[in-house]
Nucleic acid binder design. Structure first.
Length: 456
RNA sequence: UCCAGAGUAGCUCAAUGGUAGAGCAAUCGGCUGUUAACCGAUCGGUUGUUGGUUCGAGUCCAACCUCUGGAGCCA
């Protein structure tokens, strides 16, 4: 295949280039008197390259009509300074090859489309400015996650996607089976000899590795069979879960906050063009908000303080504010959007509303849990110090009606050389929403899976 | 799953219970170093589905489907 120049590189040129070959998809064509302008995009960056197709190219009149929106082209030519305004470089074509036609039924138009409409054609939407940008940023964000942990000497652990432990009761699980549903379902005859599921969290597995390699993280797909129909829940999503031995809740919060800031900074640095686009067309004020967050420390509020703030706010809430009750979305909203006007970390939650594995505090009422809440999205990080005391953990399992036998391997970590350890989970897509200003999780996942939807 | 709102041309939206329209897109033509180009023309409809009320339903009623916003569960 011909050595092609990516449009991103062509646009970064510092001087004219002889004989450049680019390939991409036509966004628009505008005909001038003796030539045509083509806006060609190859996805390497948000901007397209302006291509000039001179009218004296062989058989121009025969093929120019086929250079339509959506068509794929190979163009050879000279990269020269643009005579027009709006772009620095343009490609004066000397040869054009139509690779793939695109007829009038091509659904993407030059004008702006609603995200809802674009969702109906998830296979074509990455060719749009918005979704192309979202998925370029998504890729860079994933790389940044690995870089952050790599720089801090964390080991990346591939925890299993199929699991036999219905761990921590974190939502409904998808059953994995090879049994014929019409012939009954004896789990002992199933593929793994017992009921198995898609993972809802890699945490427990990560804990075992933290209690050996010290600092580890997982980053992979996670599945919840909840019938959630909201803009921030998906049945299949990606989660990042670091786990640190010899680390208490304070260290956990330090890491979570540093992580959020790192990802913001990295995205601003590496995706400047896309971020400017989001700021202009998706969420005005996005850049200002993110920069402001970078500059200041996260506010840390104990759960009881947070409740006091809500009680004293004079604000009317639909749901009651009361010590011991979970914070509702509207409460989190008030705290992040109205009171603190930025991300906050709420810690030391009531024991009764948190899972069994969180470390009991000395007050007997609370556990060493923490949530990082951000404006617009709510919970973006949830974590805790883990209960490392064997007897306490056993009594917690019993209190939650969980089988000690099923968790024997988990209890072994406390039986043999137990250490204080902590970790958290971050929803990758929620972070991406926070960074791009895109308000629906379905628009930051290439092919979203939600209740009733597994198309494409 | 619950509450609310919305489904009309390819898209975004109009239309007192009385002849279904505009802008954009597409197609054709014109003009032009254009860039969400511009100007003119053409094309474009089982008004989400089914049933009901009515002389007459896009409009009113019922059920269902889909989407959106909010809630719960959470990341």
């Amino acid at each position: 295949m011909i050595n092609r120049t990516r449009i991103r590189d062509a646009l970064k040129a510092t001087e004219p280039m002889e004989s450049v070959t680019v390939m991409g998809w036509v966004r628009t064509r505008r005909d001038a008197k003796d030539f045509s302008f083509v806006d060609l995009n190859d996805g390497s960056c948000l901007s397209g390259l302006q291509v000039i197709l001179p009218g004296d190219l062989p058989d121009y009149d025969r093929w120019i009509g086929e250079i339509t929106t959506g068509a794929s082209l190979q163009v050879q030519g000279h990269l020269v300074a643009s005579q027009g305004k709006g772009q620095r470089w343009e490609l004066q074509a000397s040869a054009v090859q139509l690779m793939g036609r695109s007829d009038a039924s091509y659904p993407l138009q030059k004008k702006r489309h609603s995200p809802e409409f674009m969702r109906e054609m998830a296979h074509l939407r990455p060719r749009s400015n918005l979704f192309g940008s979202v998925f370029r940023v998504r890729s860079r964000l994933a790389q940044a996650v690995h870089r952050f942990f790599s720089e801090r000497d964390f080991f990346y652990i591939h925890t299993p996607i199929i699991t036999a432990s219905d761990c921590e009761g974190a939502g409904e699980l998808f059953r994995v089976t090879t049994l014929d549903p019409s012939r009954g379902g004896d789990p002992t005859k199933d593929f793994f000899g017992k009921p198995s599921y898609l993972t809802v969290s890699g945490q427990l597995a990560a804990e075992t590795f933290a209690c050996a390699l010290s600092n580890v993280y997982t980053f992979g797909p996670t599945f919840r069979a909840e019938n959630s129909n909201t803009s921030r829940h998906a049945s299949e999503f990606w989660m990042i879960e670091p786990e640190m031995a010899f680390c208490d809740l304070g260290g956990d919060m330090d890491l979570a906050e540093a992580f959020v800031k790192y990802l913001i900074q990295d995205t601003l640095d590496q995706s400047a063009e896309e971020m400017a686009f989001f700021d202009a067309f998706v969420d005005k004020g996005l850049l200002e908000r993110l920069r402001w967050i970078l500059e200041r420390p996260f506010e840390r509020v104990a759960y009881t303080q947070a409740v006091d703030i809500l009680l004293q706010s004079g604000q009317r809430f639909e749901y009651p504010v009361q010590h011991g009750l979970n914070l509702q979305s509207e409460h989190e909203r008030f705290l992040t959007e109205s009171h603190f006007k930025g991300p906050i970390t709420v810690y030391d939650y009531p024991k009764a509303i948190k899972p069994f594995y969180m470390r009991a505090n000395d007050d007997g009422q609370t556990v060493a849990a923490m949530d990082v809440l951000v404006p617009g999205i709510g919970e973006i990080v949830g974590g805790s110090q883990r209960e490392e005391r064997l007897e306490v953990l056993e009594s917690q399992l019993r209190a939650h009606d969980l089988s000690l036998e099923d968790y024997s391997w988990y209890l072994d970590l406390r039986r043999y050389g137990s250490v204080p350890h902590s970790g958290f989970g971050m929803g990758f897509e929620r972070m991406l929403m926070f960074l791009t200003g895109v308000t629906n999780i379905r628009d930051v996942i290439p092919f979203a899976r939600t209740p009733g939807h597994a198309s494409f």
